[in-house]
Each structure stands twice: as C-alpha cells, then as structure tokens.
Amino acid sequence: MEDILLNIKDLVVSYNADDRTVKAVNGINITVKKGETVGLVGETGAGKTTTAKAILRLVPNPPGKIEKGEIIFDNKDLLENSEHEMQKIRGNKISMIFQDPMTALNPVIPVGEQIAEVIRLHQKVSRAEAEILAGKMLKMVGIPQERLNEYPHQFSGGMKQRVVIAIALACNPQLLIADEPTTALDVTIQAQILELILKLKEDFNTSMLMITHDLGVVAEICDKVAIVYAGEVVEFGTIEEVFRHPAHPYTKGLFAAIPLINGKKLKRLHYIPGLMPDPTNLSSGCRFNPRCDYKLDCCEKLSPEDIYINENHFAKCYLCAQN
C-alpha cells in the first residue's frame, strides 16, 4: 500500500446548468502507483477531463461541484485540503498538461516568464535564477534557450505543447496528469511529443495519469489502463490483461472498432451502435446495457459492482461473474 501515490475512491462530480444537474463523474475508482503510468480511456463526454480537474480541485465552481468521494494523494485526502494547501500542491506535486496547446498559454506574457513563474512559486530562488532554470527546461523539451523572451503566438502548436510540458515538469512533480496532450496535434508531432513525455518520465520518475481516447497511445505509454464510460470506470487492469483479454463488452467493442493493417479486408468497420446515455437521465441498471450485445436479465435493473477477474484486472460486468 505504501507505493500507491493516488487513490480516487467513489468520486462523484456534478454540473448544475440551467436547473438541470448533469452527473459528469459517477463513482469513479482509480489507483496510480509510484512510477506507474495509468491510461484513462473513454469517449468525449465520458468524464475524463472532469476527473482530472477534480484531482487538482480546478472544477469551475458555479456550475460544477464535487459531491462526494475521496482523492487520496500521498496519504492525504485532497478534497479536505484548504485552498491554500492546494495551491502548494498545484504545479508542484501534481501538474497538469492540457488538451489544446493553442489556448493553454497566456498570449501576452513571454514564454520564459510563464515557465519561471511556476518555478518561483514553489522554489525559493531569485528572479534571475528562475530565469536560468526556465531556460534549462526549454532546452530539455527541445526548444532553443534563446527563445525565452518570445510570445506564444510565435510558436507552432507542437512547440507550444512542449512549453506546456516544460511548465508542468519544471518543479519535478510526483504526478503528471496529461489530458489528451496530443489530440490537437498532427500525427508526426504526436509521436515526437509522446517520445518527449516518455523520456522525461524516465528521467524524473514521474507517475502519470494519461487521459486519451486513442488506444494506440495507451499501448505505447501506459502500464495500466482504465476504461471510462458514462462517468464510471467499467474496466481496469494492466495493458497485457486488458488488451489481450478485454472483459467488458464496451472494451470489446472498442477493440473491435480498430481497423487492422494486417487483418482481413472488411467491407465495413465495426462500430458500437447507439450513443452514450443522456447524463441528465441515467438509469439505475448497467449504463452500457442499451448498447450491449451480451445482455443478461439482471443487467437492466441492477448496476454491476467491480468484479475481479484476477488480481490486476476488474470489470463492471455481470458476464465476468459467470466466469
């Protein structure tokens, strides 16, 4: 138990918009061990970004609210921290990389200053020293140090994302949350950024929570993966387990939808029929039930528990209980 860095238990986050309450996250459980990279996979709207923001308590408060749950980081429940304590953790012990690099940087502040800012916040160094350290971070992410004083608009998308990574890793955090860091980039740049993240992860031994909807990225980078559907973790396990023996019908559907380069020629791609359930109107049974090919009688009425297939692998599905 000592090597568990982050443990999210039964997290429930809701948004209140125009008198309708949307349960974006509905009982999520995730564990990240020290040095591990856990992937968080799911479609848009499944609740991944909300979970990430909840960890840092950055869920915008008028519409959003963390209703219940625990987020235990380094043996302390983050949800019980004061705002001041959270400020000491953000950027310092836990950092986040955001999805859209084009808008993640402040357009009127030079890039070097934006990196130096996070250094000055958490480390007792002078302005001059912070600037030097910022320059080193730039170099580490592959940007020439001379560009310290340039503004974000003078960089391309891929380079902006590198700057964001530099800011995130400047204070050597224990946990890095990467929210779809490559989704907005070209495939070739994607590969470069992933390589950079991997290298830095090894150099600094950072644990990572990688949010993505791309199973390919998961395969390359992650040790474990959690499949999220309609605000719940429906399957969790090591890469080998989940990729080789997907247990939940949703996971099975996801893998079946991947076109194979070497597979036989198909006339049509597989897809999972239907849409994700309306978050304002969730049923009491299994969330995936309406789209499931393997329905059992109990599925419609009762929401399944986490059923362990083996030590490293569980799924929220009654099918697994049968085995």
Binding site: L56, I89, R90, G91, F98, T103, I109, E117, L121, I167
Partner: peptide
C-alpha cells in the same frame, strides 16, 4: 484555457486575476 493553466500552477486567485486575466 490559459487562466486554468495559471491556476494549475498553484497561483493565488488574486495573482491569477491581476497578472493573467487583467493583462488580457
């Protein structure tokens, strides 16, 4: 988004408003 980034760095809210938001 960059305001969320500023908060995620661990800035006090006052700093976020004055140094980041106001300038823009």
């Amino acid at each position: 988004d960059y305001i969320t980034t500023a908060r995620a760095k661990g800035n006090k809210e006052r700093v976020v408003i004055i140094n980041h938001a106001l300038k823009n």
